[in-house]
């Protein structure tokens, strides 16, 4: 079974935000009002963290796409009291929305702050309703959600492969953010296949994983110059 993972090249990333928009539309992530957004309730499964370091003339701005890193040893699934978040059969950290009781313990336990909570029921305008993705369920208020690596795309790809009576190929499946990235900064694939692009990139000297020292074994890698770090 493939071990799906992602490599994000921060030296290539332009911070254009296409991945954020693609993710939001692909996964029916709710839009909140400007006032709610100001109060810290904006919802993103993938967001850009902007960090400025140093002062002029050595000032530097770093932009880091922040999404669920799909830990192989996830601190969030351990603490869930009702098995609403778990490490699924594809080694992806999954959420069961109809079972989640909304205690937000997984959010408190996540060292990457990537889980988001539905503070109120989503309100879809006529326009946004018309572009909802039918492959992704809508979440009600009061449950936790997060990036799934566009798991619905994996399901569809598996079905196509089964119909064609062939094994699933790496090229069959790609999350929306990776697909849209105009700078080619995101690479997706099987980390266990040593010839895959992700495997080769993650062995690069520029590669590192966020909060690696916590032993969470993330499956998202970042590439960047050695003098900077996440």
């Amino acid at each position: 079974m493939p071990r799906w993972g992602m490599v994000i090249d921060l030296d290539r990333c332009t911070g254009c935000g296409a991945c954020v928009a693609a993710c939001k539309v692909e996964n029916n992530v709710q839009f909140v009002s400007a006032a709610e957004s100001e109060r810290g309730r904006r919802m993103h499964w993938l967001r850009l963290l902007v960090e400025s370091t140093g002062t002029y003339p050595e000032a530097e701005i770093r932009i880091v796409p922040n999404l669920c890193v799909m830990c192989d040893n996830p601190p969030c699934t351990k603490v869930c009291p009702v098995h609403a978040t778990y490490l699924g059969e594809d080694r992806l950290v999954a959420q069961i929305y109809p079972r989640c009781i909304g205690c937000r313990y997984c959010m408190a336990a996540c060292p990457y702050s990537v889980k988001v909570f539905n503070w109120s029921d989503p309100r879809w305008s006529a326009e946004t309703r018309s572009i909802l993705n039918p492959d992704v369920s809508l979440r009600p208020k009061g449950v936790v959600e997060k990036c799934t690596f566009c798991h619905h795309r994996l399901q569809a790809a598996k079905e196509v492969a089964r119909a064609d009576q062939r094994p699933l190929r790496e090229a069959d499946y790609q999350p929306a953010c990776v697909q849209i990235c105009p700078a080619d900064a995101m690479t997706f694939g099987d980390l266990d296949d040593e010839f895959s692009p992700v495997s080769q990139l993650r062995r690069s000297a520029r590669a590192m994983r966020p909060q690696e020292h916590l032993g969470t074994e993330p499956k998202v890698y970042y590439l960047q110059r050695r003098d900077a770090h996440v």
């Binding site: 351990k78 603490v79 869930c80 009291p81 009702v82 098995h83 609403a84 079972r99 989640c100 009781i101 909304g102 205690c103 937000r104 313990y105 909570f117 539905n118 208020k141 009061g142 449950v143 936790v144």
Partner: peptide, 25 residues
């Protein structure tokens, strides 16, 4: 903790699907 729940009507899930590995249990 029940006041704090996003979906208080599902509190019985703690007994139906409870996992002893969670400190909440």
């Amino acid at each position: 903790p029940i006041l704090d729940l996003g979906r208080p009507e599902r509190v019985m899930n703690v007994f139906l699907f409870g996992r002893l590995q969670s400190p909440l249990l």
